[in-house]
Amino acid sequence: MNLPLLALAAAAFGIGTTEFVIMGLLPDVGHDFGVSAPVAGMLVSGYAFGVTIGAPILAILTASWHRKRALVALMGLFIVGNALCAVSPNYEFLMVARVVTAFCHAAFFGIGAVVAAGLVPHEKRAQAVSLVFTGLTVANILGVPLGTALGHAAGWRSTFWAVTGIGLVAITALWRWLPSALPAQQGSILREFRAIARFQVQCALLISTLASVSMFSVLTYIAYLLRDVTGFSPDQISWALMLFGGGITVGGLLGGRLADWRLMPAMAGLFACIALVQLTFSWTAQFALPAMVTLFVWGIVSFAIGPAAQVRVLDTATGAPNLASTLNQGAFNLGNAGGAWLGGLLIAADRPLTDLCWLGAGVAVLALGVVLVSAQVDKKKAPQLARA
């Protein structure tokens, strides 16, 4: 067992739980603070914007740090942020606490992905990254449904106290198991920012953003959709989220293998599948068993994109791996915020909740177009590189 990868996955489990569990608790938080569904949904957007804003800031602040020190410090910030969430006296305080928690997200996954890729042979990079991101998938199959159930039983604040405890376990594992010899980032941070400006890097970041917009335009309001359209009780919603998490677990591992096999064709095929599954969900959401099956399949295809998109960014951003990997997490979360915002606009316009699925499918098709354009640019550049 690779203990450093396990430590990174444990931290990813905590971060993934605090990021996603809020969606199962939104009705409870909204009721507690007396805010509407779109306003409660902004807690998802606020976290995502915190990740997006924090990505370049933390990339600069931690640029000269040894990677172990940086990862431990970021997990410490995560612990403080979740404790603040647990004691929030009002909606505004909770929003600020979510943003504080989010600041560690992009930098941790950015640095962690580079560390994971460096711990294994080159041909196993995507699988190593996917193993770290398995922490996110396990968060969805265990952390989110159990956290949601705990929140329903003992109040939503208890969930954030539990996540704080997970953070303490993760920071201990990082301190004990990460190699001390992990070097600091080499080179100029300004040179890395220039490398990020290349067209193919920007395409890769856009692909990550659109993948998250597609997913979170629906997932942010999944508790409302399952309650009001499917007719699920709070306990049934927890089981449905656990099934979705099971799909995510399969998808995260499958995505790593597909990315190591044929990266761009795999991403194109996955986005096509995402669009089809979300269109299907607009109909199956009205029936309990078909809705559960669709949720499982949606979890597979939506999270299989993650490792592929991460490796695509690393491949295109030669010379800027740490910054590119960190900014890619910001791109994912910019998509989270955008998806939550667009979904909120649909709800505020009194559109049926099933229209969220059409929105997500449309964004997936747009992402497929960006993948095809980027792949075409690769083909045009290949003969030039061969001649050089």
Results as ranks from 00 to 15, higher is better:
Leu26Trp: 12
Val29Pro: 00
Gly14Phe: 11
Leu84Glu: 04
Gly24Asn: 11
Leu74Thr: 07
Gly50Cys: 07
Gly30Ser: 13
Gly54Asp: 01
Phe20Lys: 03
Arg69Glu: 12
Phe13Leu: 10
Ala73Arg: 08
Thr18Val: 13
Tyr91Ala: 02
Pro89Asp: 09
Val72His: 08
Ala73Ile: 12
Leu77Gly: 15
Pro27Phe: 11
Leu94Asp: 10
Gly54Arg: 00
Leu6Thr: 12
Asn82Ala: 02
Val39Lys: 12
Asn2Thr: 08
Ala48Asp: 04
Val44Gln: 00
Leu84Gly: 06
Leu77Asp: 07
Ile22Ser: 12
Glu19Val: 02
Leu77Tyr: 09
Ala48Trp: 00
Val51Ser: 00
Leu58Asp: 00
Ile22Arg: 00
Glu19Gly: 00
Gly14Val: 10
Val39Tyr: 06
Val96Asp: 03
Ala12Trp: 14
Pro56Ile: 06
Ile79Glu: 03
Gly16Lys: 05
Gly30Ile: 04
Cys85Pro: 10
Val87Leu: 13
Pro56Ser: 09
Gly76Val: 06
Ala83Gly: 13
Phe49Ser: 04
Asn2Ser: 13
Ile22Leu: 04
Ser45Lys: 01
Ala70Trp: 11
Asn82Asp: 10
Ala59Trp: 15
Phe33Asn: 08
Leu74Tyr: 12
Leu58Ile: 10
Gly54Ala: 01
Leu3Thr: 13
Ala73Lys: 06
Ser88Thr: 05
Ala59Phe: 15
Val44Met: 05
Met23Gly: 02
Ser36Arg: 04
Ala83Lys: 04
Phe13Val: 03
Phe49Trp: 15
Ser45Leu: 01
Thr62Phe: 14
Leu77Pro: 09
Gly34Arg: 07
Ala48Gln: 06
Val35His: 03
Asn82Lys: 02
Pro27His: 12
Arg67Gly: 12
Lys68Glu: 14
Val51Glu: 00
Met42Gly: 11
Ala48Phe: 02
Gly16Cys: 07
Ala9Asp: 11
His66Ala: 10
Asn82Met: 04
Asn2Trp: 12
Ala10Pro: 04
Leu77Phe: 13
Gly81Lys: 04
Leu84Trp: 07
Leu71Val: 10
Cys85Tyr: 03
Thr18Arg: 00
Ser36His: 02
Ala37Gly: 03
Ala55Asp: 05
Gly50Met: 06
Glu19Ile: 05
Arg67Ala: 14
Ile22Gln: 01
Val35Gly: 09
Ile79Lys: 00
Ile15Glu: 12
Leu25Tyr: 05
Thr62Asn: 05
Pro89Cys: 08
Pro56Cys: 06
Ala70Pro: 05
Leu84Arg: 07
Ala9Pro: 10
Val35Gln: 05
Asn2Glu: 09
Gly41Trp: 04
Gly30Gln: 08
Gly34Ile: 07
Asp28Gly: 02
Val96Lys: 01
Asp28Asn: 14
Ile60Thr: 14
Glu19Pro: 03
Ala37Arg: 09
Leu25Gly: 07
Ser45Tyr: 01
Leu71Cys: 10
Pro89Glu: 10
Thr62Ala: 08
Ala59His: 14
Met75Asp: 11
Ile22Trp: 01
His31Glu: 14
Leu8Gln: 12
